[in-house]
Nucleic acid binder design. Structure first.
Lengths: 185, 185
DNA sequence: AACTACAAATACTTAATTAGTTTCCATGAG
DNA sequence: CTCATGGAAACTAATTAAGTATTTGTAGTT
């Protein structure tokens, strides 16, 4: 039951932001009462914290699997787009902006996860690529990671696909291609 | 200035629904104060009414242009997907659900527009297709239009494109293809 | 420097909404 | 028939939002 609550809350929080999503709506989505909801969670804040921790745990698991199952650093970068960054993008800027004000500790936790896990994981992939002769030696891996994550964040959003005639798979391919090879002729 | 207000309000209303979009947010998006906002519009309801009427007027104009410029009924159906129904879908179910409660007259106006303009316009296209021998005579044009508009409504939504590997143009083509030719081998 | 017009920023009033709690009621199991 | 459980609805207290009013800052003019 807790997982069902987290999933419903995640959907609401990520689509509308933390503030505009109400506990009445989460309960209604599940066909349960707020009484039942508050049996499982102490507060709305507690729900948000649990939602984010579950997502981070899920991503952490994925990253570990990639390290084991995918030896090629370039392929691992590709998986980072499709499996990891796409998940993080779902959180949405609304949710993050709201919890920055309402639950700053959770916001810092998200920033830390992004900084420590995703960013450093990606940076390690780039460094491994340099060692294996697949990435140029003079690339600043920190800047490259910012470029990479910024590109993903800008493109992988629902509204972009309604306005542009490419599919999400095409978007993934193009982002990776541009990042890896640049656009110069 | 009125048009800028309508555009900002439309963006907010259509993304969040009528209730969750606030006049504070609309004003902030425009970098003006609510004082200035309420110089131009009597109330929030007045803004919503103006937004919808402008959109309907825009669509009405498009339909008139199609009748003049596109003789082929099948091509006109295609344009209805890409130019008209896509616009109407932007309104979103949230906004419609909210105004059904808060501004029922506007909701009825939307339903009327959909029923009188879009539906009958499309039905007329089908009938013309029958006359020109391009559509089967035994097709019930009312049911066919419901099928058509229902299919568009189900597919042309931002979330669908994040979860599925086809582009919006591919979606348009497939909806029209299935509607025109069916899927049977 | 002083004055005026204008609008943003902010404060305010009133009504509505929301988080979280409590009560009432319906339902199923024993 | 009784009991346990949870949905529906009501409730309290705090917060938010529509719309209005006041304060403040800025630009232009004299």
């Amino acid at each position: 039951m807790k997982n069902r609550i987290l999933e419903a809350a995640e959907n609401r929080f990520f689509q509308y932001g933390y503030r505009k999503a109400t506990m009445d709506e989460v309960a209604s989505d599940l066909g349960i009462s707020k009484k039942t909801l508050y049996i499982h969670f102490k507060s709305k804040d507690a729900v948000a914290i649990a939602v984010i921790r579950a997502l981070h745990k899920d991503i952490d698991k994925l990253l570990k699997q990639f390290s084991i199952k995918i030896p090629d650093p370039v392929e691992r970068l590709g998986m980072m787009i499709t499996e990891v960054s796409a998940r993080l993008t779902r959180i949405g800027t609304l949710f993050l902006a709201d919890i920055k004000k309402d639950i700053p500790a959770l916001w810092r936790e998200c920033e830390d996860f992004r900084e420590k896990k995703i960013f450093e994981y990606g940076e390690a992939i780039l460094k491994e690529g340099i060692r294996k002769g697949k990435v140029k030696k003079d690339i600043d891996t920190k800047i490259a990671m910012l470029v990479f994550l910024g590109a993903i964040h800008a493109v992988i959003q629902p509204e972009v696909f309604v306005k542009n005639p490419f599919s999400i798979d095409e978007a993934y391919k193009n982002i990776l291609n541009i990042f890896l090879k640049g656009i110069q002729k």
